[in-house]
Simulated scan of single mutants.
Amino acid sequence: MPRPIDHRSTSPYPADRVYAVMADPEYLRARLARMGGKGAELLEHSPDGDGVRYRLRQGLDRQLLPPLVQTLIPGDLMIERAECLRPDTDIGGYRGDVDVRVPGTPVAATGAMRLADAAAGSEFAVRARITVNVPFLGGKLESMIAEQVVKLLAAETGFTEEWLARRPT
């Protein structure tokens, strides 16, 4: 049964400013350099109408994986993540999609993103579902992966806030 992820974070910056950073290839490369692991790379980046679409590869050292996952994965993990964000006038911000694949494994995640102005700046939200198609262990693995994804999203939010604070408008 797929495991849901519901992550929310707030920023003191307006949605348009946060979006501009999230859509910036320089920012994406810097974020990958800081927390993307071995083999991290911005694979694609392109305007998509008024929005943006990009694809990232992140590496995760096998030794950082929970022991149960290490028994199922022969080497380091390479994670491919495709995201798009586009303006949404209904919410006064941006909506998008995220699709995550781990090539060579039965792990996938799909979901939606939302970035909108809030009372004291903006709010970024990700709702996704992780699926691990492994009999008997899938649910346990989904739970472990969901926990790690939430930690990653929090770390990325922290990086984004640092990036914005260093670059005045």
Score class of each variant (00 low, 15 high):
V134H: 08
P2N: 04
M22L: 09
R55D: 01
A30N: 06
T71W: 03
T110R: 15
L64C: 10
A116E: 09
A116V: 09
R31L: 14
P67M: 10
E147W: 00
R101C: 05
R31C: 06
D76G: 06
D50Y: 00
V134Y: 08
P4Y: 04
R166V: 01
H45K: 11
D90T: 14
Q70A: 08
A146K: 01
P47G: 12
V107N: 01
A30I: 01
D48S: 12
G59L: 10
G39D: 03
K38M: 09
P12T: 00
K140A: 14
T160M: 11
Y94K: 10
A23Y: 05
V126C: 12
G158V: 03
V52K: 13
R81N: 15
K38I: 04
V52M: 14
I79F: 06
R55T: 14
R127V: 03
L68M: 13
V149P: 06
R17S: 03
S122L: 02
D24Y: 04
D48H: 11
L141A: 08
V18Y: 01
P14D: 15
N133L: 14
G138D: 11
G93F: 03
N133M: 13
M35G: 15
P74M: 12
L115V: 00
R127G: 00
V98Q: 12
E147F: 00
